[in-house]
């Protein structure tokens, strides 16, 4: 990745995870399956809205400790 300015590995991993999780959530199959009365697509969106802030905050705090 010589063409890019360096980014911490944990930040790269967090971004890739969140983008991959979002793409996974939008697979059409999750619209049809329901758990507890809510489509899996809905549960995945709830999970994304919980994981995204917590993971980013964790990565930030970890980075600050290392600095």
């Amino acid at each position: 990745m010589k063409g890019f300015f360096p980014m911490r590995r944990s930040e790269v991993a967090a971004l890739l995870f969140l983008i991959a999780f979002s793409a996974f959530s939008f697979l059409p199959v999750w619209r049809r399956i329901e758990i507890g009365g809510i489509a899996v697509f809905g549960w995945l969106m709830i999970a994304l809205m919980l994981i995204s802030p917590v993971l980013t905050l964790f990565v930030f705090i970890r980075g600050q400790r290392r600095e």
């Binding site: 967090a14 969140l18 983008i19 969106m45 994304l48 809205m49 995204s52 802030p53 980013t56 990565v59």
Partner: peptide, 12 residues
């Protein structure tokens, strides 16, 4: 949820 994903992009 798009906005919630946008915040990590902005932060990082």
């Amino acid at each position: 949820a798009g906005a919630v994903l946008g915040f990590p992009l902005a932060s990082i």
